[in-house]
Amino acid sequence: MEDLLFYLFAFVVIGSASVVVLSKNIMYSAFSLLFTFFGVAGLYVLLFADFVALTQIMVYIGGILVLIIFGVLLTTKITGVDIKSGTTGKVQLITASVVVVIIAISLILLFTNVEWVNQEFVQPNTTIDSIGFAFMTKYLLPFEIAAVLLLIALVGATLIARRK
């Protein structure tokens, strides 16, 4: 059952990610990004990371995807023909494919050749306890810094995007 779900989610993630990258229509890209985020959230659930999965849905789908769709709507002329989005020329395409093949081969070789220490998969009841304790004790300073960073980013984004 788990294998079946894993392959289903993997298929959804890779298929919709390909649509994001290869589609000519930018709205199709934005909407298939939704399925990628949902697929990754499903994989988190399969890995028993429940809180991360919920946060993935709230932050990525509720926040970032909505922002991206607003960006699409504000920067393309819907009534015109400009909703199509082009790719680069042939030289860049060849260079890019060489670079991408090198990256893919090296990553997959790295991941398959390293002898990972094999441990029994422990099945936690819930991860919220350990995450909450870690945030409030060991990772308290990074937590506060992240909060300040979010505030700065919010103010900066408003300042950059406002009409002069």
């Binding site: 990258v21 989005s85 082009g86 890019a96």
Partner: peptide
């Protein structure tokens, strides 16, 4: 594989939002 697909997008597309 997902990282590689993302790299393809960054290297080949022209639209900043993509």
């Amino acid at each position: 594989v997902l990282f590689t697909i993302g790299t393809i997008g960054v290297l080949t597309r022209r639209n900043a939002i993509i």
